[in-house]
Design a protein around this nucleic acid. Structure first.
Length: 282
DNA sequence: CGATGCCTGCCC
DNA sequence: GGGCAGGCATCG
């Protein structure tokens, strides 16, 4: 399901819905969702109050007092639902429930069961696997053109692959990689270390622009993505190449095609996004 | 590095 | 029935 904009929408929804709630019980219905000892997980969380929810890349970070953070990654299909009473019917594939002292319940639902939760010490967040190697947050000042250029020059592999690598920039996934490359007139197979300065600047600016716009529209909803408040996103109507295979490019009318790049479906316009095979490696 | 595994649902 | 799906960790 979710890339940075969708996770950010979930974070904002949860911040409206569950801040200040105290956990009274936890049920783990799918074992693998929670990494590490389940007893420890429950023992350390029950009785705690949610202080706030942060985000780093595609990771949600539930903050508790006393240096405690629950890391939640939704992977492809994970989402949260807050119900007002614990006896409300369960959605299929409910994996974990957090019951609160006020009688409401937060449920984690994940049809493909890829999502994972971990409990970590907040002050050790930067050494936690997954979080440790994340690149800059694209919507902060940490994401600047010179650093981005330096990173791209280290990668002699397709720019699409490099964008999906979370050490390059945190939070870009398959949709926003394809979309920002289309916006920037860059072929997905163009080696990252052959981009021109102009292309790097354009791509950098388009990443920021596109992620911000998507957040403003509530994210992209295809099938499963809904915010914790049950609202769907609207950004799917603004996509140009993703999910538009076989349709005319809105800039030039050429048919959008699909290829595989590192086993990921990759959509682009073969006219607007030209591959320069002989371009000099920088 | 690239390939594979994790899962279920949906579309052809 | 086969192939594919918004992602990542782990394997060889």
């Amino acid at each position: 399901m979710p890339e940075l904009p969708e996770v950010e929408i979930v974070r904002r929804g949860l911040n409206r819905l569950v801040i200040g709630k105290t956990i009274s019980a936890i049920d783990i219905l799918w074992d693998k969702t929670v990494n590490g000892s389940h007893d420890e997980f429950k023992k350390r969380l029950i009785g705690r109050t949610i202080a706030r929810i942060d985000r780093r890349g595609k990771y949600l970070l539930f903050r508790f007092n006393d240096n405690l953070t629950m890391v939640s990654h939704l992977r492809m299909e994970g989402h949260y639902q807050l119900v007002q009473k614990i006896d409300e019917p369960f959605m299929k594939h409910t994996c974990v429930t957090f019951t609160f002292t006020d009688g409401t319940q937060l449920r984690y639902i994940d049809s493909r069961k890829f999502g994972r939760m971990d409990l970590i010490a907040t002050d050790e967040q930067d050494s936690f696997k997954g979080l440790a190697k994340l690149g800059p947050e694209p919507l902060t000042d940490n994401f600047d053109v010179p650093d981005f250029a330096r990173t791209l020059r280290r990668h002699h592999k397709p720019i699409k692959t490099t964008l999906l690598d979370q050490t390059t920039v945190a939070g870009i996934g398959n949709i926003y990689a394809d979309e920002t490359l289309w916006m920037s007139y860059i072929h997905p197979l163009q080696p990252a270390d052959t981009l021109t300065d102009d292309e790097i600047k354009l791509l950098h600016d388009n990443i920021i622009k596109e992620l911000k716009l998507s957040i403003a529209k509530g994210g992209t909803t295809f099938h499963s993505f809904i915010g914790a408040d049950g609202k769907q996103g609207e950004f799917q109507h603004d996509l140009h190449v993703y999910n538009h295979v076989g349709e005319p490019c809105e800039r030039c009318g050429t048919t959008i095609v699909k290829i595989k790049v590192n086993q990921r479906g990759t959509s682009f316009c073969p006219h607007c996004q030209v591959l320069y095979k002989d371009r000099i490696v920088r």
